[in-house]
Every structure is written in structure tokens, then in C-alpha cells.
Design a protein around this nucleic acid. Sequence first.
DNA 1: TATGAATGAGAGTTCATTCAT
DNA 2: TATGAATGAACTCTCATTCAT
Lengths: 204, 204, 204, 204
Amino acid sequence: MSGGAPARLSRAERREITRQRLLDAAAEVFTDHGFDGAAIDDVAARAGYTRGAFYSNFADKTDLLVQLCERRIEAFAADELPDVLARTPDERLGWVADWLAEQVPPLEILLAIELARRRDHDPEVAATLDRVVTTLLGAIDDLMAVEGSTLAELPDVERRDRALAVLAGVTGASLLRHLGVDTGPRTLALLLDGVIGPHEGPAA
Amino acid sequence: MSGGAPARLSRAERREITRQRLLDAAAEVFTDHGFDGAAIDDVAARAGYTRGAFYSNFADKTDLLVQLCERRIEAFAADELPDVLARTPDERLGWVADWLAEQVPPLEILLAIELARRRDHDPEVAATLDRVVTTLLGAIDDLMAVEGSTLAELPDVERRDRALAVLAGVTGASLLRHLGVDTGPRTLALLLDGVIGPHEGPAA
Amino acid sequence: MSGGAPARLSRAERREITRQRLLDAAAEVFTDHGFDGAAIDDVAARAGYTRGAFYSNFADKTDLLVQLCERRIEAFAADELPDVLARTPDERLGWVADWLAEQVPPLEILLAIELARRRDHDPEVAATLDRVVTTLLGAIDDLMAVEGSTLAELPDVERRDRALAVLAGVTGASLLRHLGVDTGPRTLALLLDGVIGPHEGPAA
Amino acid sequence: MSGGAPARLSRAERREITRQRLLDAAAEVFTDHGFDGAAIDDVAARAGYTRGAFYSNFADKTDLLVQLCERRIEAFAADELPDVLARTPDERLGWVADWLAEQVPPLEILLAIELARRRDHDPEVAATLDRVVTTLLGAIDDLMAVEGSTLAELPDVERRDRALAVLAGVTGASLLRHLGVDTGPRTLALLLDGVIGPHEGPAA
DNA sequence: TATGAATGAGAGTTCATTCAT
DNA sequence: TATGAATGAACTCTCATTCAT
């Protein structure tokens, strides 16, 4: 009856689909209304479910925030990062600038701010925030640790300082765009050239 | 009637005091709970009033947000800025870094994010957000337009790019601190040296 | 304009009226649906208000339960008790039986059961339950401490035992009526005669 | 197939085990949280199942209440009652007092109250409540109808009045214990001596 | 028979806001 | 100007129940 297609999904698979849809919907609703402003009914409805589906997949609203952050940071590390690493150092700045321009509003930043507000009241939240930052810093470090680059030869402490600066620069530029300020690739270039630029090739 | 003594306050003065107290209380409550999470009763109570006082002084909750942003940006321009301008270019970076370290959480940034979320639905909010950004950019421009500096001689477009970069850098560093990342003066230095650093003295 | 009548009510008076109406409504709704089954909206509506009025008068649903118990026990001590005390010992048993017959369902008992369920989680609830029982036992003791009665001359411990027995008897009879059992004055007479009966007239 | 070994259980037996476990779990959860406060998931979980098992065995929550009452009253008649009847009349009061002391909270009473609340809306519930009361009254009547006792010779109407009084006394004492009142055997003795005491043997 | 994802009515509670005082 | 009782919309979360598996 049901043709040669991959047929029916198992329960676990359906559950996973539901979760992912809810998470995607949450990303949209958070983007539009912020965390506090997001109604769970809206999240569920946008995912095509009712509120009950939400509560059978997430413990509560905070859990949703945490899960969303975890998933997005994982997805970032799995999907975006390899893309950048595949570029030559020269192309990376441009790639990051383009990527940034697409991320308006910068959901990760807004989510991180919400995490920060709840950090002191919920250890799990604190752990997630920590993981987000650590992952990002690690990703930047990977970007700098390129063979032949003088950055790769810097002492760890120095490399971390630079990673911090890069993260701050990218974060700030992203946020500014979100605030409606016309930030272009030039902004990022100005900011990051001093941090990673001159090192992007010993020849230079 | 109103003798030479410090004596009684006029009606307008009392009103102004009430407003200011409410605004100060709002800054605290917003800092703790965010805009959506802030209850007007809490704001009023922290200021020593009840909600009636609030509604005698502000049209609604959004009005409070707008007024608070306006006041803070005015206060920044009037109080903080002159302090920086009084420093030599060499000292400024340190001054900004210190100032930043005190601003955790960076209320202005959080408020701006709230403004941004309401920008499309409320023209007054949009205007305020614009004013905030313009003022900050103007302030940075003032900082760069120092006599003798090569920055001062840059074309306007270039100067704006640099101001943007500075604002992004400062914003990003501030936000990172808020997220619990251990950002020190070094981060800012790395970020801004490329933008304003080398120019901080024609001799260099 | 507003004639010689006692005119307008002060705010505190209006508030008190509101509270009393809500409490009365709560007694009715609890009677019909039990505590858990009672919806605050129903309570408010039956009192002629909306849910907001409820929450500006009571902290939460448990608070309502506590306040209701307190008020009813006070009212009992102030209103019912003097009535019984005014009777001769011979008439009292009949009076209590009649009073009991009217108390279907026996709201005080049902409320006390709810209090008991929450006793361990809320000290205030425990205190209220304690007060209810103490007041009732005290009332019974007063009833027994009649001049000339041999009960009055019993040692305290013995008097307490008897008070306990009376309370148990009245409680049980009341509950049985609530359960639909046709309990008449005879039941109470049989039960209490052994406890207080022989004393209902030394001549007898 | 089902050999001589203790071996496999038939389908009906398994079903019966499941039902009994659920019923036992329900008794516990009702005791802790009351009927309205009891969650079916909790009942199922405490029995080691999920909600599906519950709905395979009971029509709905009310059905659970009814079945539980039926079972308990049957169990009482089958298990407890013979124990009392085996005692001499003199020992019975003590036996009942001890049994009472163990029944805190007095689940039967609490269940009966729930039944009473639903009596008017559900004929089956009304029937169950009736059966519970009738069974208890019959049990008490059996206790009184002992050979040689003067109670046994009383006219039926009188015997019923006494049974009612006994039930009321026991119920009241039980409830008082549940409310935290320190009710001892003495309370019951005082209450019941007048009803059944002097008759417990003409010799005495 | 038992599971568990999903439903959806309904609950308690919060809170921006109004308005008579 | 400031108070605070009252409103009522909106929200998070619970839970009895259904149904495909």
C-alpha cells in the first residue's frame, strides 16, 4: 500500500521532528517578540501544534531557551564553521561579514542576553551560556590556528586575547546592524585588521 | 512667598523629582528583569510611590522606556563625555575601558535592543533609537576630531566608518562582559588600536 | 444631594465589603465543588466581581481558605456560641442537634480537611487549623463549665477528654448527614448522653 | 498448556493484577493529594505503568473513585470484619480504637466525601455511596447482634439508631485524629459506652 | 494490553491600565 | 498629584482524555 518510499516514521523520529519544528518556530517568535514577549501558544501554533505538544517536549519556557541555544550552537559548529575553515584566510573576513549581514537580528546574541539574565537563578542556564561562549571562542581559535600563520605561533594567552577581541568585534557589529545602524564590511575590516589582519600571511 | 530659604519646592520641581526618581528606579528594575519582565508596581515601589504616581508622570510603559533612553543619552552627553574629552588622546582608551567595566550590565545596550524591537510599531520609539545612535556616533566623532590628530583630517566618510567601528568594538566588549566573559582592557586595545590607535599622535 | 443617609462609604469600608462578599461567595463555591474544584473566577463572579478584585484582596487561593476559616471560626464564637450558652443545659442538646441539621454540608469540617492536607507544607495553614480546633474545644468546654453542673467540677484532663468526645460525636453526626445518612437528634442524644447526659440535671 | 508449575498468568489474571496495582496506587495518591489533586499520571506511575494502562482498565477518573470505594468496602467486609467478630464483645471497643488509630488519614471517609459531592450528578456514584454506608451500618449491626447481648434483643429501629450513633462516633473520632487532634481510646470509650457499653453483657 | 504524542479546556496568577477619590 | 480598588486580557502550566501504534 505505502509504496517503496522510506515509509512511516518511528515514534522517536516523529518526536524529533516535532521538537525541531517547535525549536524553529521558537527562533522566529523570539526574534519577533523577545523571550519574555514570546507566547508559548504562538510558538506551538507557528510550528503547527498546540500548546500540549510543546509541554510534552519541553519542561517549561526556560527549557526551550536552553535547548534552542544548545541546538543552535551545535548547528553552528557543525554547519557554518566548516564553511569558513574551507576558505583561505584572506577570504574569511569577507565570509564573516556576509554571514553577519544575514543574521539580523542576531538571534544568538539576543538569546545569550536572556541566558545571562537567568544565569544566577538556574545552574543549567549558566552552563549553557558558558558552553555557547566557549564554543564560539574555540571556533575563532580554530580560525586563527592556521598553518603558516603567525597567529598560530602566538602563545595561548595572547591567542585567547585575540579571540576575545574578534568575538567582541563581530558581536558589536552584529548588534549595531540590529539597531539599524548601517554597518558594512568596512566596519569589521577596520576592527579586525589590527587583531588578525596583519598576520594573515607572513608574506604580507 | 518663596523666601530666601531653601524652602518649599514649586509644583514643577516636585513633579520633576518624582519623575527622576521613577526613572532611576526604572533603570534598576530594567537592569534586573528586562523591560518585559519589569512590573510597573515594582518601579513605582522602588521609587517610593505607587502606580498612580507612575501614571501621573508617564503615558504608559513604552513612554517610560523612551523617556529613560532620552534622559540617559542626554546625561551621557552632558556628564560623561566632557570627562573623556578632558583627557589626552593617550588616556582615552583607558578611560573608556574603565567606564565600560563599570557598566555591567550595559543598560544602554539592553534598552536599545528593546527600542529596536518596537521600532517598527511606534515612530516615537524609532526616533528615540535614532537619536541614541546619532548621539553616540557624534560623541565618538568628537573624540576623534582632536586637533593635531590625523583622524581629524580624514574625510567625513572615513571618519564615520571609524566611529562606527569604535562603537561596534565598545558595544561588543561591553556585551561580552555582560555575558560573563572575562574581557579586559587588552580586548579593547586590540580592537581599537587598528582604528584609532596608530593615529593617536602624528609622531607615531 | 445625597440625603441624610450615612452617605458614602470610605475606601476601607468598601474594601471590607468586597472581602466579605468574596468570602461568602467562596463558602458557597467550596460547598458545591470543594476547594480544589472551586474556580476563583466562579468565586469572584458569584460575589459580583472579576478575578482582579479577588487578587487585590487575597494573596492566593490558599490565603482564601485560611481567611475563610478564620472568619468563620470567629463568627461562630461571636454569634452562635452566645446563643447556646443562653440556653439551659437541658435545651442545649436539642439546640446543637438543630444547628447541626442546618449545616449540611458541614463546611467547617470540609474546610478543616483541606487545611489538614496542606498543614505540612504551610505553617500558616497549620496555625489556622490549630486555632479552629482549639476554639471549638474551648467552646465545648465553656458549655460544660456551667455552674452547678458536676462537669464543672471535673479535673481538667477529664474535661478535655469529654470535650474531645463531644467534638468527635458532633463532627461524626454532621458528616454522616452530609453523606446522606438519615441522622436525627436521637443519634446525637445516644452519643452524648454518656458524655454529658447524666449531668443534665442533678435532680434527674 | 498452563502446566502444573506456578507458571504463566492468564490474560484475565494479568489484567486483574494491573487493576489492583492501580487501585492501590490510587489509594496512596488520593491520601496524599485528595481526589481532585490526584493526577492520573501519578497514579499510573506509582503503580509502575503509564496512563495508557489506566485507561485500559478504567473508564475515567470517576470510575476509579467508584471502583476504589467498592473494593475497599468489600475488603473491609471480607478481611477486617471477621477479625472483630472473632473478639468477645468486651474486646471489640479496644479493637476498633486500635484499628482507628492506624487509619490516619481515614481514606474511606475522604472518599465518601468525594462520592457525596458527585452524588447528584452521577447515579452510579450515588449507588456506591449508598452501598458503602449500608455495608458499614450492617457491619455494626452484626457486631451488636451478639447472642446474649441485650442489644440483640432491641427492636430493629432502636438497633439502627444505635448503629448510626456508633458509626457517627467512630467517624468523628477518626476525622479528629486526621485533623491532628490527639484523640485516644478514651474518646471512643466515652462516646460509645452510652450506646453499646452498658449492654455488653447483662452480667457486667 | 499498554505506550506515549498530542489535544485542548481550564486553572491560577500577573500586570498594564482605568478611574473614583 | 497621588492613591489603590477593580478590570480584564494574556500568560504559563496542568491534566483528563484520545488515538495511532
